[in-house]
């Protein structure tokens, strides 16, 4: 389980101190949790801290009891590799690698042999409906296809925690629906933390956290549709 305890982040901007997140405490259960709020409410900062991209000014992040914020950079990277998957708004695929090679990248980092990497990447791409796009470079894929590749990559090592930061922000309606369906499907069996502006998308999660001015304003438990 991923747990944030009294999590705060302060930045210096010249003379001024900016508080991006203040006293955030929450234990993310299995299933999808959406984090919503207006721009500047601290959503991105929260995700940065939960994923160990950045360190909190106060408080801590615990993954199954392991204090992530106390680990050195390379150890946090190791934890991310084994326990977390990421889907970003801008897809962030490696442009020189084909679709299957992008999906296989975390498996390469984990030291898996080539044959296994290839088999697993092919299977994941088939699962997201891209069996016909295995050898295409990201530049030859549509936005929706790229996001599905990114989702397949996030699932490559079957991580217990999945982060999605505005995953449908840059997509048309049809692609948005496809990606959302795949995302919530994957989120059923793990902890999915979905950061979004899109309240309609957030409503499909089991819980919604409302951030305001860097604080957790309220938690809403939604009855998942269907």
């Amino acid at each position: 389980m991923l747990r944030a305890e009294n999590l705060s982040k302060r930045y210096r901007q010249g003379e001024k101190e900016v508080v991006a997140l203040l006293g955030f405490t929450y234990a993310f259960p299995r299933g999808a949790t959406a984090v919503v709020g207006p721009s500047g409410s601290g959503k991105t900062t929260l995700l940065n801290l939960l994923a160990g991209f950045d360190l909190p000014s106060e408080g801590g992040v615990y993954l199954d009891g392991l204090a992530l914020h106390q680990l050195p950079e390379d150890e946090r990277a190791r934890v991310r590799l084994k326990h977390m998957g990421f889907v970003f708004q801008q897809w962030n695929l490696i442009p020189t690698l084909t679709a299957w090679e992008n999906v296989a990248f975390p498996l390469l980092l984990a030291g898996r042999p080539r044959k296994e990497r290839q088999e697993q990447a092919f299977a994941l791409l088939e699962r997201v409906g891209l069996a016909h796009r295995l050898h295409h470079l990201p530049s030859r894929l549509s936005g929706g296809e790229q996001q599905r590749v990114a989702l397949a990559r996030a699932l490559a090592l079957d991580p217990p925690v999945l982060f999605a930061d505005e995953p449908t922000g840059n997509l048309d309606a049809e692609s948005r629906e496809q990606v959302a369906a795949l995302l919530f499907e994957a989120g059923k069996e793990r902890t999915l933390i979905l950061v979004t502006h899109d309240l309609e998308l957030a409503a499909r999660a089991e819980r919604i956290l409302y951030l305001k001015g860097g604080r957790l304003a309220r938690e809403e438990v939604v009855q998942p549709a269907g």
Binding site: F53, A77, R78, R80, L81, M84, N92, P106, L109
Partner: peptide, 16 residues
């Protein structure tokens, strides 16, 4: 730089 950022986010160590 962004590509390296993605690699690090996915779990690549600095040495990689």
């Amino acid at each position: 730089i962004r590509e390296f950022g993605v690699m690090r986010a996915l779990g690549a160590r600095r040495g990689f």
